[in-house]
Design a protein around this nucleic acid. Structure first.
Length: 558
DNA sequence: TCACGGAATC
């Protein structure tokens, strides 16, 4: 068994292969590999084997490395680890996990490196059950006591998958943890929108005497954005500056700008972006998104222009944001320009999300023909693009078209979801198609298994209300299997705001008031409806009524 | 060979 012997030519090969890895010279590496095979050595030593696999990995030929490894009669842990890590590195996580399974089937022992790689793959693709299974194996082998890295990978896996209670439990049970372990947990809470928990864990970390690094700050800034804690975010900002962490760290810079944007402090975000030469497309997109969010679409488009002037190239996310801006101010010409830019770059070929954003832009501009044309040109007609089109027809009052579209969609075997039904019920309501509406409402559950939610009930109330069937509307509400009837009325009112419908709005408002006098949100909603319809005076009178009811409430409470 | 980080569509 000469593979266990280290021969002179082995050392030489290893040296040469390592040189190829360093130089990323695949051709030279392949030549060496061929030479090795020509020598007719029946079994190459582990040392040469590892060097070969690593050469292919380092030269970016992951598949080649994998094939080589599979073809070897005897495999070792390190070679597998290399290939698994390489698959993860190029985003092929299912392949990485498949390698992990193969390694176990072949009886090659997994070590802590193998496990942390496998956990990382699970985290990336949110494969929590596979992760749990790996957790069990690790526990059986008692590996958590010896590797702090493995502990962090485990916490991270649970956190990314959204099993946050488990993530925290695991963290607390670890014999060793450091700032990275804690950051995995903090970031997980922030990632899933639990800003308060993220900050709570951050405090716990400080309590253990650990000090945050740049990555920790990214997590807590995201948490502040989640809960709109601008003051707290500002304190983190100061600390980041004091520690000099911002220099050369684009990710942290973008997180900082995004925090201010999410808190609504657009000026502050703008100032930071402006004064920082490192501002990249993430920073710009965040700000543009912020403008769109606040209804400042003109500013968003200005910002987009400026960004391009500065030589920063937009991504699909940037394009989706500016399309939204065009839609909300009906800027169809700008939208068309952007459409052209997107097409030129071939971005519509593999990004369905962007395609739907484009259709939605035309829909919101009221350009239904253009919307339909843009949609027809998309490579795949997925659920979202169908639904966008249906929503478009419904919004423009072309309700028969909307219903036709639904039938076509079924014809093409695309299954509707709950959003599709909201649009359909909306279209029925607009056309006064009471019976059709009732039919679709039933169909939704019986044919498609979709349980009606708040929006659907609200659509039905709206449908009856618009048809003048007020008694039916009210008895419908009383039958809704919800604790919170008010939520349905609020939803009806929100819909009225969207389409500037004062009549139904007023009716719903008065009814809801009768049921629950003290709900302050109702006044806001009614006032918003008046605002959307441009009825300033009525808006003020609603504010006045609310003020009165407030003082009345005060009296009662004394 | 291994652990924590950035924007988003109805």
């Amino acid at each position: 068994m000469n593979r266990h012997l280290l021969r002179a030519e082995d050392t030489e090969f290893v040296g040469l292969l390592r040189a190829c890895s360093r130089a990323k010279d695949l051709r030279a590496g392949v030549r060496l590999h061929a030479e090795l095979l020509k020598e007719g050595i029946p079994e190459i030593s582990f040392l040469v084997q590892d060097a070969l696999v690593q050469m292919y990995v380092k030269c970016g030929a992951v598949l080649k490395a994998y094939e080589l490894l599979v073809g070897l009669r005897v495999k070792n842990t390190t070679s597998w680890n290399n290939v698994i890590a390489a698959f993860i590195g190029c985003g092929q996580c299912p392949e990485a996990l498949d390698c992990f399974d193969q390694l176990k089937r072949q009886g090659v022992p997994a070590n802590s490196v193998t496990f942390s790689c496998a956990l990382k793959a699970c985290a990336r693709i949110r494969a929590v059950s596979k992760g749990e299974q790996i957790h069990d194996e690790i526990a059986i082998q008692g590996l958590l006591g010896c590797s702090i890295i493995l502990g962090a990978a485990l916490v991270d896996m649970y956190a990314k998958c959204g099993s946050l209670i488990m993530a925290e439990q695991v963290l607390k049970s670890l014999p060793n943890r450091n700032v990275i372990t804690w950051t995995a947990l903090v970031s997980g809470f922030a990632l899933h929108g639990h800003g308060h928990d993220a900050l709570r864990c951050f405090e716990l970390m400080l309590h253990e005497g650990l000090s945050p690094d740049a990555v920790t700050f990214v997590g807590v800034l995201k948490a502040c954005g989640n809960i709109k804690a601008a003051a707290k975010g500002e304190r983190f900002h100061d600390e980041i500056i004091r520690k000099g962490l911002l220099r050369g760290n684009n990710v942290l810079l973008a997180a900082l700008i995004d925090m201010y944007v999410k808190c609504g402090c657009l000026m502050k975000a703008w100032d930071i972006l402006e004064e920082n030469p490192d501002s990249d497309v993430f920073c710009w997109t965040s700000l543009i998104e912020g403008y769109v969010e606040q209804g400042l679409s003109e500013e968003a488009l200005e910002c987009f222009k400026l960004m391009k002037q500065k030589g920063v190239s937009p991504t699909t996310v940037t394009f989706a944001s500016v399309l939204k801006a065009c839609g909300s101010i009906g800027a169809v010409e700008s939208g068309e320009q952007i459409h052209e830019e997107i097409s030129r770059q071939g971005l519509l070929l593999d990004d369905f999300v962007l395609g739907s954003a484009l259709v939605d832009m035309y829909v919101k501009c009221g350009a239904l023909l253009k919307a339909k044309k843009a949609r027809d040109q998309l490579p795949v007609h997925d659920l979202v693009s169908w639904t966008t089109l249906i929503a478009g027809y419904a919004q423009q009052g072309q309700n028969q078209e909307a219903l036709n579209c639904f039938k076509q969609m079924e014809h093409f075997d695309v299954s509707p979801n709950e959003v599709t039904f909201t649009c359909i019920l909306n279209a029925c309501s607009h056309s006064g198609l009471v019976e059709e509406g009732e039919m679709y409402f039933t169909l939704m559950y019986t044919n498609y298994g979709i349980k009606p939610v708040l929006e659907h009930y609200a659509c039905m109330v709206d449908l009856y209300g618009r048809a003048g069937l007020f008694n039916l509307a009210i008895s419908f509400v009383s039958k809704i299997p919800f604790d919170d009837y008010m939520a349905v009325w609020r939803s009806v009112l929100k819909a009225c705001e969207k389409r500037k419908d004062v009549t139904i709005g007023r009716w719903a408002f008065e009814h809801a008031l009768q049921i629950h006098n003290g709900d302050a949100a109702l006044y806001d909603l009614m006032s918003n409806i008046y605002r959307s319809a441009g009825m300033q005076e009525n808006m003020e009178s609603i504010e006045a009524v609310r003020a009165e009811s407030k003082s009345w409430e005060k009296m009662v409470s004394f």
